[in-house]
């Protein structure tokens, strides 16, 4: 018994220390920091000034932060529907015995291995360019002048331009997760249902969808985490100064903590910590909601 306890201690202690220092300590420090004014992210606690809930109150009252949260919600909900919907559709098509499955899968996944900087530059400076862009030329060729004249990166349109470009790069990743889930479903289920007269839609509704709930949960959680951390694409679509259309809470946080623009402005790591805590709580809420509403423990296969 003593030997076993010793082994447990020996094997668990490094992991425990690792968890406490790398995860728990930063969470506690960030949570504490969110109630203080802290000029520099590495300032010692002696330099912190207690401000109570005022960082959270300020966030609630700042229209730019509210806008960033609205952008985040749209990215999560609309982008989520688009990415997960397309990801599921492609995964299903690829698992119907289509020829050159590996090739198509690789093509759909390809944007994931290209740097976001390269992808965003392609979208911004080529696809959306009103000077020589793909869309402008395409619509001109088709004779649809009203669409050819659209300024895709102008105020009001830039959010959609960003969202579409971002989703384009994300579909493949979620398709792979769905695909791995579909591949796990025994082929006999489909064979039996075919013999019983089920068509593809029926198979999807009664076999694939119920058995993919676990994978769907994973995908929603992964999508939520990546949405909350939405940063690089926003930065790439609005270099130097942020845009109303593209600002995300993470970019807002970054600007506040690092005074990231060209103007030298007051830094506030405490406010940034409050943003971080708000986003952290959001992820937890989504995780709880997903577990509550999508139950995958009813079926075993």
């Amino acid at each position: 018994m003593r030997k076993t306890t010793g082994k447990i201690v020996v094997f668990l202690t490094p992991a425990l220390i690792f968890f406490l220092t790398v995860f728990l300590y930063p969470i506690i420090r960030t949570a504490t920091m969110s109630f203080f004014y802290v000029e520099n992210i590495t300032s010692g606690m002696k330099d912190w000034s207690f401000v109570g809930l005022s960082n959270y109150v300020k966030l609630a009252n700042t229209s730019l932060f509210r806008t960033s949260m609205w952008n985040l919600l749209r990215i999560w909900a609309i982008g989520g529907l688009l990415v997960l919907g397309l990801g599921l559709m492609f995964a299903m098509i690829l698992n119907t015995g289509v020829r050159m499955k590996k090739f198509y899968r690789a093509v759909i996944y390809l944007p994931n291995i290209i740097s976001a900087v390269a992808l965003a530059t392609m979208w911004l400076q080529f696809v959306y360019s009103t000077r020589f862009g793909l869309l402008t030329n395409l619509f001109k060729t088709m004779g649809i002048d009203s669409l050819a004249a659209v300024e895709w990166t102008g105020p009001g349109n830039k959010f959609w331009a960003l969202l579409f470009a971002y989703c384009f790069g994300m579909v493949g990743y979620h398709m792979l997760i769905f695909s791995s889930g579909i591949e796990k479903i025994p082929a006999e289920y489909y064979e039996a249902s075919s013999i019983d007269g089920a068509n593809i839609l029926g198979q999807f509704r009664h076999i694939t969808w119920p058995l993919l709930k676990g994978v769907l949960k994973t995908n929603i959680t992964m999508w939520s985490i990546s949405s909350v951390g939405f940063f690089i694409w926003s930065q790439l679509f609005s270099t130097v100064t942020s845009d109303v259309d593209t600002i995300s809470p993470m970019v807002y946080l970054y600007n506040q903590v690092f005074s990231a623009g060209n103007a030298i402005t007051q830094r506030d790591a405490g406010l940034g910590a409050a943003v971080g805590m708000t986003l952290g709580i959001l992820v937890v809420l989504v995780f709880v909601a997903v577990n509550l509403f999508i139950r995958d423990d009813e079926l075993e296969f």
Binding site: T62, S63, S238, S242, D243, S259, G261, N262, A263
Partner: peptide, 18 residues
């Protein structure tokens, strides 16, 4: 200073720009 002060309020800069 940078932009003659027009970017001095980071909570407003993106809104003014738009």
């Amino acid at each position: 200073s940078w932009g003659a002060g027009i970017e001095n309020n980071p909570d407003m800069t993106p809104i003014i720009k738009q």
